[in-house]
Amino acid sequence: MTEVLSRTGVIRPDPKDPSALRIDEVLVRKMLVLFIRDETWKTRLKRAVVGVSGGVDSAVSVALASEALGPENVLGLFTPYRHSSQESRLHARAVSKQFGFTLEEVPITAQVDAYFRAAPVDESDPRIRIRMGNKMARERKSIEYDRSWPDGIVIGTSNKTELLLGYGTQFGDMACGINPVGDLYKTQLRELALHLGVPEEIVRKAPTAELWEGQTDEGELGFSYAEADLVLYHMVDRRLRPSELIAAGFDASLVNRIREMVRKNHYKRVMPLIAKVSLRTVGHDFLYPRDWEAD
């Protein structure tokens, strides 16, 4: 009984105590494997397609998919742009070797560069970099969707931290049929990755979307995932207000900045708005479950 309370009832927000984020990896693994299996088979699909970047998030997604559907039913796609590192390629291959799924390499440099060549851009301009990054993310996703046809599902790799911060490209890396890792913060995903047997080198390296050379997520965000995860956990999971977090000793500018990112990017997490004019409208009052099964 005391244990139950200590785990669920009396977690206090403390910027120096990351233990609130710890998860039961065995339980989470079981839940996520069953989720992938159930939600894939229910749609009469049997294969999974996962973009494998060489990073930890996609390593976890593809490992879970391989366990759920059998590695023979999983296709990993490594889709390098010219900025992508040899290290990423080696890591993607290591993940493929570890979990037994087929990995294919489909470069995206030619099509992305062809597109931007039509109206030449200055790659050193940060706004252009963002456009190019978005284009790469959507290019990759269009390949994953193409390769999923006709009997495969695209498995998402966006973690809870990215989803909440909106740190991703809508209809790009955020797009998927199902997402097994979207309710796990980055630090929790790392914990799960080690449990699943993802090589430690991949788990420990600095996260990067490799949208330009030398980019790292934490460098771009201006805070670490460890910091963000703890703030988000107390703010979202435990429903504490920013003022309560600040009173508990969290850095005010960090808390406010994170809160604003969550708000500003919420549109990325929901379906596009449909203007309601008729008596019954998709998304408003035509509300059927997605898992609407055939009888």
């Binding site: 139950v4 785990r7 669920t8 998860i23 839940m31």
Partner: peptide, 19 residues
């Protein structure tokens, strides 16, 4: 629905229901 996967025990919902 099962939820609550904190380290160090059973599923949060399971603990509440069993209690």
């Amino acid at each position: 629905p099962g939820r609550g996967v904190a380290e160090g025990g059973d599923l949060g919902t399971a603990e509440s229901c069993r209690l």
